[in-house]
């Protein structure tokens, strides 16, 4: 096994065969909704990547860091005390989303977890708690599905390249990508900082490189945007790397990104999966 530094480089490399070419980190639907103004406001691509670093990507990185911690300490985290019984029938706040309304409701989190190959299907390592904490913070079911699909793609590769990963995750499980990255980091010796940096860099790079396919962008300019995001990436790293507690995972959200994602799945013309 190589050094942690090299593992980090591999994970950050878009050429690693994990389906990265199918992802735009939500940029495609955002562009369709007007981001970049047909090429007249190209700097919005950078702003979009920064907004993600401050919201959704921050959550992903924190989840990865905590998942890594759970594996390394071997101590399953305490599930957060349930302050409300979310699934209580008739619970008023729950009403509009109640699975009882529609037995096939795709918003039913319980059904999601029961999926074959998903984490709900019996893992003792405590990662379910972290995965559930992640799912609770990602309100779009479409985004959850896309991130879990990406997790499965990575897991498939990671299980072969770093067989230790298989001790913690079921083969071919649809498991949120940050969880899979956290396990890879634990198994290969990546530090929490390196892991958070990989998550952040990968997300920003996904946005920036997708912009080359979606907008009239000069590739060298795109690289300049990425370089200009380094401070934001390091800020994210400093914030999330010390986290060890599931309850401390931030819950930043970007509702517009969720709305775009929901629109994207029904779109007929699309280059990217998400």
């Amino acid at each position: 096994m190589g050094t942690a530094e090299l593992v980090a480089l591999m994970l950050a490399d878009g050429r690693l065969p994990t389906g990265g070419h199918t992802q735009s980190a939500g940029l495609e639907p955002a562009v369709r909704a007007g981001l970049g103004a047909d090429g007249k406001q190209l700097h919005e691509v950078q702003t979009y990547a920064r907004d993600r670093l401050r919201t959704v990507t921050r959550v992903d990185a924190a989840v990865a860091v905590v998942a890594r911690h759970v594996i390394l300490t071997g101590r399953p985290p305490e599930p957060p005390p349930s302050r409300v019984d979310w699934s209580a029938p008739g619970s008023p706040s729950r009403e509009p989303w109640s699975p009882n309304h529609n037995p096939n409701s795709r918003l039913d989190a319980t059904a999601e977890q029961a999926k074959p190959g998903g984490l709900g299907s019996g893992l003792g390592s405590g990662l379910e708690v972290v995965e559930r904490a992640w799912a609770a913070r990602v309100s779009s079911q479409v985004v959850r599905e896309a991130v879990r699909r990406q997790g499965r793609l990575l897991l498939r590769l990671a299980g072969r390249v770093w067989p230790g990963v298989g001790e913690y995750l079921p083969p071919d499980g649809e498991i949120a990508r940050p969880i899979v990255l956290g396990v890879v980091a634990a198994v290969t010796g990546l530090s929490a900082e390196q892991l958070a940096r990989v998550v952040a860099y990968d997300d920003a790079q996904t946005v920036v490189s997708a912009s080359l396919k979606l907008l009239p962008v000069d590739p060298a300019e795109a690289a300049t945007w990425l370089a200009a995001l380094h401070d934001d990436i390091e800020k994210l790293v400093a914030d999330v790397a010390p986290l060890t507690d599931v309850d401390k995972i931030p819950a930043n959200a970007a509702p517009l990104i969720d709305i775009h994602a929901q629109n994207h799945v029904t779109e007929r013309m699309r280059l990217f999966h998400a």
Binding site: R15, G19, H21, L153, R156, H273
Partner: peptide, 12 residues
């Protein structure tokens, strides 16, 4: 890429 360098999404 989808059929050659990174077939994972297709394979799945």
């Amino acid at each position: 890429t989808a059929i050659r360098d990174d077939v994972t999404p297709n394979l799945i």
